[in-house]
Design a protein around this nucleic acid. Structure first.
Lengths: 166, 166
DNA sequence: TAACAAAAATAGGCGAGGCTAACAATGTCT
DNA sequence: AGACATTGTTAGCCTCGCCTATTTTTGTTA
């Protein structure tokens, strides 16, 4: 695939994001964004320049090449996907969802990513973003109370009726 | 927390697993298990010895200290949890589920892990391992066909009945 | 017991990604 | 235009996790 280290991918994504919000990306911004010192940025960027993913003139601004841009977009798309899984399914708050997404994005296999895509698509189809069972899960996470029926979406034993919330 | 690098955690887990299956762990076994050469193992192990997680006499077998054992167990428990999520929820095959679990285990936050635990517990409570919606999801993954009802577990619009499979 | 095979350890090197300190270029402001 | 602050670069060092080549120890076997 991209053959980049996890860390280089982080740099690429950060450049893309900074470009969106500030129009222009400087070493200093990148350093702050990634929690690192300037010389570290210079070092990593120089590798990305050699890989043809980043452009920068001496003492100038940093930008993505078309290839770098394409790659960054796809990395961010994957990250966003993961974040929405963590946020919407597991009910993590946005910040923590983003943190997990960013950390994990480098390490999941393509099939795993596809399955998560499927999972989210499934949610959208099945209840426009929030099927009953997911509401039940959220309730379970918050309160520890078991879901209101024995088998989500199935006839309750005993009275032969479905539970009300279902 | 444990303050170990991801790679050191891998070594610790590998020692634990080899100890279970072979009773005795040698540098050579560990090297093979981790896809690495002996001197690399010697180097990493020497760090783990200094951290008090591993015991080894000169030219002798490798074993976990009580602290190392405790840590390894908890790491493996987390990994197993992730694997079962990937396998049971996302329907990845065992090998790929294990690969993803092993890679990701180092990077998720505690809360995220807890949520996954909750998710799996929820599944167990809600349908003894496989609620209807999960069957629907698996079907969706395999065939691309949308779930049989508009809103899993809810009355279908139109005829006022639930779909048959639900 | 001496010789040899197998395994572990050491020596020394490499690249990635960090750091600090020092230096060079740029931009701004009077 | 000159002075100074800001920012980028270079130099040089560190740790980690990997490697190959070599040496040391251990274990086996004639």
């Amino acid at each position: 695939m991209s053959n980049l280290s996890a860390r280089s991918e982080d740099y690429l994504k950060a450049i893309f994001k900074l470009q969106e919000e500030k129009k222009v990306v400087r070493v200093k911004d990148l350093a702050q964004c990634l929690g690192v010192r300037s010389p570290t940025v210079v070092g990593v960027i120089s590798g990305l320049k050699e890989s043809g993913l980043v452009d920068q003139e001496h003492y100038g601004y940093i930008s993505l090449t078309p290839e770098g841009d394409t790659l960054a977009r796809s990395l961010i798309q994957n990250e966003d996907l993961l974040r929405s899984f963590f946020e919407e399914v597991l009910s993590l708050d946005t910040e923590e969802a983003g943190l997990n997404a960013c950390n994990i994005e480098h390490y999941i296999t393509p099939t795993c990513r596809e399955r998560l895509v499927s999972f989210i698509k499934f949610l959208e189809i099945c209840g426009r973003g929030s099927p009953k069972w997911l509401d039940h899960f959220r309730h379970f996470v918050l309160t520890g109370e078991p879901p209101p029926c024995d088998r989500c979406g199935e006839i309750l034993p005993g009275d032969g009726k479905r539970c009300e919330k279902d």
